[in-house]
């Protein structure tokens, strides 16, 4: 009910309600974006875009499930788009790799990560994007495979297999275990 009320107040133009939603879920959203993109600037941009889209779509928006699940799915969508765009830029050679470590601090980067997220996002970077998002939405967003499948427009079995492959690969990357 809390989230429904906040969404309603946003619909009425309440900046405070929007800020409340952001504060409530920002850690989860930034973590997902970071795990999917392994780039702090990009994760900041993605969450920014998610909130802009959220406000733009408020008129027709109707909250039927959890707001957190909805926003996490939005982050995953925007992250995928960002990922695709990044690949296009790389192919076109317009975005040279600066060799900057993913979690290095700079004066303009005020999104701070601990050591664990460095390990997580580093390992995630070794997975195909599709596996990353299923792993994160399931383990971090607590979304069921059926819900992920609906959001991704894939079958539930596909979601499950992406998850399984993703977990195996992550364990290998984190522990050096052999993949099956």
């Amino acid at each position: 009910m809390e989230d429904k009320l906040l969404v309603y107040r946003c619909k009425c133009g309440s900046q405070e309600a929007l800020t409340q939603i952001y504060r409530k879920y920002k850690a989860d959203l930034l973590l997902l974006a970071m795990a999917l993109l392994n780039d702090r600037s990009a994760c900041e941009d993605v969450v920014h875009d998610v909130f802009v889209s959220f406000v733009q779509g408020l008129d027709g928006f109707r909250l039927t499930g959890s707001l957190k699940g909805f926003l996490l799915t939005c982050v995953a969508n925007h992250a995928r788009n960002w990922n695709k765009a990044q690949r296009r830029r790389s192919r076109a050679g317009t975005d040279a790799d600066t060799g900057k470590p993913a979690c290095a601090d700079s004066p303009t980067e005020a999104v701070a990560c601990n050591e664990q997220i460095g390990r997580l996002s580093g390992a995630m970077a070794g997975l195909p994007f599709e596996q990353r998002e299923v792993v994160m939405l399931h383990l971090h967003g607590a979304m069921t495979f059926a819900a992920i499948a609906r959001a991704r427009q894939i079958s539930t079995n596909t979601a499950k297999s992406r998850y399984r492959y993703g977990i195996d690969r992550l364990r290998y990357l984190l522990n050096g275990e052999a993949t099956r």
């Binding site: 946003c10 133009g13 309440s14 900046q15 929007l18 800020t19 952001y22 920002k26 850690a27 930034l30 973590l31 970071m34 795990a35 994760c43 900041e44 969450v47 920014h48 875009d49 909130f51 802009v52 959220f54 406000v55 733009q56 980067e109 005020a110 999104v111 701070a112 990560c113 601990n114 664990q116 997220i117 390990r119 997580l120 792993v135 994160m136 383990l139 971090h140 977990i167 992550l170 364990r171 984190l174 522990n175």
Partner: peptide, 30 residues
């Protein structure tokens, strides 16, 4: 193990970052 790693992962945004992230949405809302 992955779950624990996710659980222990922390990411925080400074007030400046919060402002950058939210500014677009707040403008649209205004």
């Amino acid at each position: 193990e992955i779950k624990r790693l996710i659980h222990e992962s922390q990411i925080t945004a400074s007030p400046e970052a919060d402002e950058r992230i939210l500014c677009g949405a707040l403008d649209h809302l205004a």
